[in-house]
Design a protein around this nucleic acid. Structure first.
Length: 268
DNA sequence: CTGAGATCCTGGGGGC
DNA sequence: TGCCCCCAGGATCTCA
């Protein structure tokens, strides 16, 4: 479900809502959804901790705890983190936290791919490529990532160990914006094309964050609000519809087992 | 190391 | 209505 802009939106909401609050009660409602890297029981270990900060790394939500430990969440496809005054009925609820001064945080996940992990230092969110919105991510940095790679550029953009945070929607959208065909070999892109892709990634991610993410199916942020970027998508989910720029019908192919949308005229 | 494919799950939508 | 198949915002593991 969520990619960088959605996770960023959730994190901003969570940072406002739960920073500085102490966990009074932990309810594990599906054991398989939580992982404990620390000795002892998950709920016991987490209870009493204060959430110091909430930040994002790639698609991970990282909550730093008072002890220095970290509670890290990956939402995968259908995970949600919802802040609420009272615990809501939810058949897909996996974990609930109650705060000392009232209010709850609920982790819910229909497809059960998501994970909440308690670690000594948040190391779960490691081994990732650079953040595309970090100033250190320059066109030259992107060129370095692509160099010598024979894989299609779309596949490389989805590889979190190369570039962190981009998922299927924004990979498709960025390639459209840059006018690059998703199947082009990553290492074969000209310098000018790499520069266009770099600019497109930053523009599309920034715009999506400003619109609070894309709610294509059921994504909502920590406050339960839908995003707005789905209305602006140029290619993702628009198979057969006309390109907003040239009016050619948008095509869909499968690449690395993922639906891939592009304009056959604008993207070469 | 690289790249391709299967796999983990559940639910929604379309075709018949 | 019901059934079957395909599809889904992700990452990880195995295999060649």
């Amino acid at each position: 479900m969520p990619e960088l802009p959605e996770v960023e939106t959730i994190v901003r909401g969570l940072a406002r809502a739960v920073s500085g609050r102490r966990i009074a009660e932990v309810r594990v409602e599906m054991a398989g959804s939580v992982v404990n890297d620390l000795p002892g029981d998950f709920a016991e270990t987490l209870r009493g901790e204060r959430i110091e900060s909430v930040t994002r790394r790639a698609k991970f939500v990282v909550m730093r705890l008072g002890s220095g430990r970290a509670l890290t969440v990956h939402l995968r496809m259908t995970g949600r983190l919802i802040v609420e005054a009272q615990p809501q009925e939810d058949a897909y609820s996996r974990l609930r936290l109650r705060f000392e001064d009232g209010g709850w945080l609920r982790f819910s996940d229909v497809r059960r791919f998501g994970r909440v992990r308690l670690t000594a230092d948040g190391a779960w969110a490691a081994g990732l490529g650079p953040e595309p919105l970090d100033p250190a991510f320059t066109p030259e940095a992107l060129r370095g990532l692509l160099e010598g790679r024979r894989t299609p550029i779309k596949s490389l953009l989805l590889d979190q160990s190369r570039l962190a945070g981009v998922g299927n929607i924004y990979a498709c959208e960025a390639l459209y914006l840059a006018g690059i065909h998703p199947k082009r070999r990553a290492g074969g892109l000209s310098k000018a094309r790499v520069e266009r892709l770099h600019a497109a990634l930053i523009r599309v991610l920034g715009r999506a964050i400003r619109m609070r993410g894309s709610s294509i199916d059921d994504y909502v942020d920590a406050e339960g609000l839908r995003g707005g970027f789905q209305n602006t998508l140029a290619v993702y989910g628009r198979e057969g519809l006309s390109c907003r720029r040239c009016h050619a019908p948008i095509k869909r192919v499968t690449l690395a087992q993922r639906g891939t949308f592009y304009c056959p005229r604008c993207q070469r």
